[in-house]
Amino acid sequence: MNDNSLMTNSLVLYLLGLLGFLINRRSFINLLLSIELMLLATTLVFLESSYFFDDLIGLPFGLFIIAIAAAESAIGLGVLVAYYRLRGSITLEQF
């Protein structure tokens, strides 16, 4: 594995997440998963490039992203629960 393929892998992951976000029309959980996928793909890019640069800045950035991704998905699930209680389903057909 050279660095290019690693980088390509994570960008492809990001692209998958983005496509999942844009194409998906039904389920909120899928949207949340796609967001997570995008965030983790960027984390991966940061980690790889900090490894290749022998640079320390990318690692804490990756850690921050992971922490914030957790907070974000927690809030998203919280909103989802409120939505579910009212509507009885989590499909997003009326958007």
């Binding site: 980088m7 990001y14 997440g17 983005l18 976000f21 909120f28 949207l31 967001i35 995008m38 965030l39 960027t42 890019v45 940061f46 790889e48 490039s49 900090s50 800045i57 990318g58 950035f61 992203i65 974000e72 809030i75 998203g76 909103v79 989802l80 409120a82 939505y83 009212l86 509507r87 997003l92 009326q94 958007f95």
Partner: peptide, 27 residues
Amino acid sequence: TSAALKYFLIGALSSCLFLLGSSLLYA
């Protein structure tokens, strides 16, 4: 709640885009 859901999704998408930009810049 549905507005909050929408707001959350758009906000998360835009922060993902921000992260993509910054990670590419870093790389």
